[in-house]
Amino acid sequence: MTETLTQTAPGRAAPPAPAAPLLSVRDLGKSYGAHIGCAGVGFDLYPGEVMGIVGESGSGKSTLLSCLAGQLAPDRGEVVFDTREDGPRDILTMSEPERRMLSRTDWAFVHQHARDGLRMGVSAGGNVGERLMAVGARHYGEIRATAADWLGRVEIDTTRIDDRPGTFSGGMQQRLQIARNLVTGPRLVFMDEPTGGLDVSVQARLLDLLRGLVRDLGLSVVIVTHDLAVVRLLADRLMVMKLGHVVEQGLTDQVLDDPQHAYTQLLVSSVLQV
C-alpha cells in the first residue's frame, strides 16, 4: 500500500458550500435489456465540488455520466439540478428545449476525444465563440475578444485563433475543447476521461490547468476516468463503480488510501507505482 499521504484535494476560493446541492441524484438506473448499465446510484454534488467516478471499462461509469448529462434517458430515478431561474428541477422531466438550453449555458461536457467536442471545420475562435453566439451574442468584435481571452486562459497562443483544430496537437485540442465549454460560465462540468488520449507530459499540464479553472471559477465537476492519479489530483470526492453499482464513495484520498470494499482494494493495489 502507498505510504505517501496526499495533500488536500484542490480547494476553491468559494466559501464553505451553501446548504443546497447543485446536483442531486436519487436511485438512478439504466438497463440495456438484461444487462445493467447502472443501478441505484445516488449522491449530492455541492457547488464547487469535484467528484470523480472510477471503475474499469464496463463498470457503468460512462452510462452514468450520459444519464447525468441528459444524453441518455435512464429507466428510473431523479437527477435534480439547481437551475438559476427556477431552483431545483428534475432534468429527466424537463422538456428537451430546456435541457438543451441548460447544456449550452449552465452545463459543459468535455469529451475524451476532442474531435467529439469540437467542430473540426471551424476555426479555434469560431469554436470558442459558438456557445456565445448560441445564447445571442451578436457583436463580432466582442465575441472575438472573448474567444482570444479564453484561448489565453487555456494557454493557446492567440495567434492561432483563426487556425482550425486539425492543425493543433492533441493537448491543444483538448484545451480548446475546455475553452469552448467554459466560455459561457457554466456551473456544472461533465468530463469523460479528459486526459485519456494524451501523452503523460501533456496530461500534467492539462490537470494543472483544470485545477486552476475549477478553483478560480468555482466549478462543480463530475469527472469519469479510470486513472486514479487523475482523480487524486483533481477530485474532492470519489465514487467507485463496479458492474453498474456504486461499491464505495467518500473523500478521494480516504477512498484511495483506506479503501473499504474488496473491489476498491483490488483497484488501488493494481496501480503500478513509479
Binding site: 471551424v122 476555426s123 475562435g125 469560431g126 459558438e130 453566439m133 448560441a134
Partner: peptide
C-alpha cells in the same frame, strides 16, 4: 438553436 448560422458568418469575417 441558430448559433451555428452566426458561426458561419464569424468564420467569414475572421477569414
Amino acid at each position: 438553436e441558430y448559433g451555428l448560422m452566426h458561426v458561419k458568418l464569424y468564420e467569414d469575417i475572421s477569414r
